[in-house]
């Protein structure tokens, strides 16, 4: 038997799984988007009406804007994660313990994290406002009730939740840089900042690019924490694309329109991914 047959044979189970679980539902979602369907009765083909409506739907673009904002925040926060991992990777005392502490939130489920932060943000009994009151703040912010700040309030737990994941990736990448390069730089008189910025960062640039894609794509389809903490409220102030899709499909029984929104979410994410890949594409990858 030829080698190719074996390759096909071994790839087949995975291919089938991915096809059944991912690609077929994707196509189906796009197809449902062409229907007027309440999820229960018969479907009615209405062409591109749903997609045209999505294009003109203020609520959708508002939620898309929130998702975009989230993506920007997540990307910026990568810098914080990177800085922390650089400190952890240099041989400071207790870095092992700290790394485990940073990793903890990653082991919690999103719902548990959401519940935890709901308690922290509670306007009258919450930890945060109690501390603020302690410092004499008269009217502490209503973290999850104020439409102007609710998105930022939710961003903090997200930042905290993903810290462990990205720090772990960066840490592993940084540890892979051969010690001899750093030693050489030191002998040449490079300051720690120069070493970090001019030597370590370029050497792990490949990893950084991957994390940027991960962070942006992850933010665009973000759902769980927001769903539990605010349900997209108050009055849509923290609605993101995925929560809006869920609300349409399961909240208003409008599965056709919800599917159209879901498909738009996919298209937007795809476009953004392609753009990032283009922008961050390098002529040459650095090698050790």
């Amino acid at each position: 038997m030829s080698n190719k047959w074996f390759i096909t044979l071994y790839l087949l189970p995975a291919l089938l799984l991915v096809g059944i679980l991912i690609f077929i539902p994707l196509v189906l979602t796009g197809y449902y988007g062409l229907m007027r369907w309440d999820g229960i009765g018969a479907m009615e083909f209405i062409g591109l009406t749903n997609y045209i409506n999505v294009m003109q739907d203020g609520m959708f673009w508002q939620s898309a804007g929130h998702s975009g904002l989230l993506a920007v925040f997540s990307t910026l926060s990568l810098a914080i994660y990177l800085a922390v991992s650089m400190i952890l990777a240099s041989k400071i005392k207790g870095s092992d313990l700290l790394r485990k502490i940073y990793l903890l939130p990653m082991l919690l489920s999103s719902v548990a994290i959401a519940q935890l932060w709901i308690k922290i943000y509670n306007p009258s009994n919450g930890m945060l406002n109690e501390i603020l009151a302690w410092f004499g703040v008269q009217n502490p912010p209503l973290w999850l009730a104020d439409p102007n700040i609710v998105l930022y309030s939710i961003f903090i737990p997200i930042l905290w939740q993903y810290a462990g994941f990205y720090i772990l990736i960066y840490y592993a990448a940084l540890k892979n840089i051969p010690e001899s390069i750093i030693e050489a730089a030191k002998i040449d008189g490079a300051s720690p900042f120069q070493i970090a910025y001019r030597i370590k960062l370029p050497l792990i640039m490949g990893v950084v690019k991957v994390t940027i894609v991960l962070a942006i794509v992850g933010s665009l389809k973000y759902f769980d924490l927001i769903y539990v903490m605010t349900g997209g409220g108050p009055n849509g102030a923290s609605e993101v694309m995925a929560s809006y899709m869920y609300k349409l499909a399961f909240g208003t029984n409008n599965f056709g329109y919800g599917s159209a929104v879901g498909f738009m979410l996919l298209i937007i994410t795809l476009i953004v991914t392609v753009i990032i890949r283009k922008v961050t594409a390098d002529k040459e990858e650095l090698q050790y």
């Binding site: 709901i118 306007p123 009258s124 605010t230 108050p234």
Partner: peptide, 16 residues
Amino acid sequence: FVSGFNGLADEEAKSM
């Protein structure tokens, strides 16, 4: 109404 009611779930209000 209690402060921040738009961010509170019914369960939280009940517990207050």
